[in-house]
């Protein structure tokens, strides 16, 4: 993390090359994280663009960080939430317990290979039945490999709350999984 602090300081001093490296190195992680709750690519690109542009503008006023990735994830998250709030003041139907068709969504569109498509669709269905917040925490933990502390920082909640939320999400996942297990095992074993 020493390196992160060093890079961050050079960026704050106006080192354009470091800044460019940072965009290049972090963009995918930000995009992947953002896509867990914003499905529109243009909106997402805009938000990431705005995030970096604003970092550059305000670089003299930024506090130091030795964890660039979690810092950026958190900033993007705040931006996206504001954007969602702005463009869609209506309560999502999911919040009314409407069961959306699990076939829909970015997860499924991105599944391309046909060989184990069935398995993926089933897992996709399970993933889809998690709430956005549960998906988000699973992403941060298992995709970004963030520690509980770092997740707590990104989501702005306490560390015990992270542990709690994560175990909830996993329990739910496991329970749902169990219901599709029989057919899945046949594929895995067979």
């Amino acid at each position: 993390m020493e390196q992160d602090l060093e890079r961050w300081k050079r960026f704050k001093d106006g080192d354009a090359a470091v800044f460019e490296d940072m965009i290049r190195g972090e963009f995918r992680a930000l995009f992947e994280y953002g896509s867990r709750f914003v499905h529109d690519r243009d909106t997402l690109n805009d938000c990431i663009h705005d995030l970096f542009a604003s970092l550059w503008d305000r670089r003299h006023f930024l506090v130091d960080t030795d964890k660039i990735r979690p810092y950026l994830l958190k900033s993007l998250r705040n931006r996206l939430l504001k954007e969602i709030e702005r463009t869609n003041p209506l309560t999502p139907f999911e919040a009314w317990h409407e069961n959306l068709d699990a076939e829909e969504g970015i997860e499924n569109r991105l599944i391309s290979t046909e060989t184990d498509e069935r398995r993926k669709r089933q897992i996709g269905t399970v993933l889809h039945s998690l709430t956005p917040r549960q998906r988000e925490i699973i992403h941060l933990k298992f995709f970004e490999n963030l520690s509980h502390e770092q997740i707590a920082g990104v989501l702005d909640i306490s560390r015990p709350a992270v542990a709690n939320l994560l175990s909830q999400a996993l329990r739910l996942f496991r329970d749902k999984w169990q219901t599709i297990l029989p057919s899945l095992l046949m594929i895995l074993i067979g």
Binding site: F27, F31, E32, S35, I111, I123, H139, F143
Partner: peptide, 22 residues
């Protein structure tokens, strides 16, 4: 399975798209 599938489900940014955005 969960870990690999979760990773596969991530949105894909091609090199070209990345470059455009940068």
């Amino acid at each position: 399975e969960l870990i690999t599938t979760w990773r596969e489900h991530a949105a894909i940014v091609t090199d070209q798209q990345l470059e455009d955005q940068v």
